[in-house]
Nucleic acid binder design. Structure first.
Length: 111
DNA sequence: ACGTTGACCCCTT
DNA sequence: TAAGGGGCCAACG
């Protein structure tokens, strides 16, 4: 049932669908879920998703392409390391060529 | 049950 | 160009 986890489940699902070498934003996920202004909720869901290996939270950044949540990982450097491992270069906590690496769930799922 | 915080985003000064 | 405040929804104390 998990009716109360519905919102979280959707966030997890979208994040799981993020292809390697691509990134998305909290607002994009929130907008896809219908809660455009609730980008913070996505971040909150990510906090719980942090314990799920199937949810690559390191591929989720803010609209600025900045690794705002890196501080929540096991180590602040882990997020950037994972991104670089996927071929995404990060500098000053910000993804380089972010707009090109941006992966929009609405486009991928083509609603 | 109320108040505060939070991995954000947008607008105004 | 930079800084500040408000809004959003949900969980934690």
């Amino acid at each position: 049932m998990k009716s109360n986890d519905n919102f979280f489940a959707q966030v997890y699902q979208v994040v799981r669908l993020i292809p390697s070498g691509k990134v998305t934003t909290y607002g994009a996920i929130a907008a896809y879920l219908g809660s455009k202004g609730s980008a913070r909720m996505v971040g909150w869901a990510m906090n719980a998703a942090h314990g799920l290996k199937d949810v690559p939270a390191h591929r989720v950044v803010n609209r600025n392409g900045m690794l705002t949540g890196k501080n929540h990982f096991s180590t602040p450097n882990l997020m950037q390391e994972l991104l670089e491992k996927e071929g995404i270069y990060v500098e000053d906590n910000t993804i380089i060529n972010f707009e090109n690496l941006f992966w929009d769930p609405a486009l991928a799922l083509e609603l």
